[in-house]
């Protein structure tokens, strides 16, 4: 599905990612972990083409995303839930969903089907369609950000710290959506800081430090106390 090799990217003259390798497979949740400033968000942005790759390949089912204009990346089936949600705050819930559908299916019938499917996952949004996105609660905003990304009808779903600042019931709701998407066969790439949120959810964990790969763990490896301790060591907790 997603295969990143030797990716270097950054902002202007300041490199953030230095030869990163990563894989995310269909039907799996891959969790990207690392300390603040390690380059996790930059990696997500590089996949989306929002930060240009200076070297390396970002291959999604044979398409080199690094060579595409940024607005073509979502059309390859990549849904993005950015850190801090970044909704179009002055637009209504319905309009935010409409923007997401713009990168989704072309024909009206498929669009209607995707919209209905997404709203079935987040029934609370159905009641708020006319409300301005900026006036929703934090949890509802996260639901909308996730719904907007799912409107793309993605095969790869990127989520950058989706549970940050949410109450436990909302965290559980978002977690259930991630599991449902994995079970539907999507590749889910999740950036997460909290180890307790990752254990039991991740199929594999990739740790990056200072823009480089540090260590990878499979689900089975994470059940071993020694590996869990090493993971905590990487994160400094």
């Amino acid at each position: 599905m997603l295969k990143i090799e030797g990716l270097s990217a950054g902002y202007g003259a300041a490199p953030v990612l230095r030869g990163v390798n990563l894989r995310a497979e269909a039907g799996e949740i891959t969790v990207l972990m690392g300390r603040n400033g390690a380059g996790k968000t930059t990696l997500m942005k590089a996949i989306m083409g929002l930060v240009r790759a200076e070297a390396g390949d970002i291959d999604l089912d044979g398409a080199d995303l690094a060579q595409l204009p940024p607005h073509m990346v979502p059309r390859q089936g990549v849904g993005y839930v950015p850190q801090g949600r970044r909704l179009f705050a002055d637009l209504s819930v319905a309009q935010n969903i409409e923007v997401g559908l713009g990168a989704g299916p072309k024909d009206a019938a498929s669009r209607r089907a995707v919209r209905a499917e997404v709203l079935e996952l987040f029934p609370r949004l159905q009641e708020r369609m006319g409300q301005r996105a900026g006036t929703l609660s934090g949890g509802e905003q996260q639901m909308l950000a996730t719904a907007r990304a799912l409107c793309v009808r993605p095969k790869l779903l990127l989520l950058d710290e989706p549970t940050e600042g949410l109450q436990p019931s909302m965290i559980e709701a978002i977690r259930q959506v991630m599991v449902a998407m994995r079970d539907k066969g999507l590749a889910v790439l999740l950036v997460e800081q909290r180890i307790d949120a990752v254990l039991g959810l991740a199929d594999r964990v990739s740790v990056i430090e200072m823009g480089r790969n540090a260590e990878n763990f499979s689900r089975a490896e994470l059940t071993e106390p020694e590996n869990a301790r090493r993971l905590r060591g990487h994160l400094g907790v």
Partner: peptide
């Protein structure tokens, strides 16, 4: 409202 997010949704 947000040019970068607009790009991320195919605009």
């Amino acid at each position: 409202l947000d040019g970068e997010m607009a790009t991320a949704f195919g605009i």
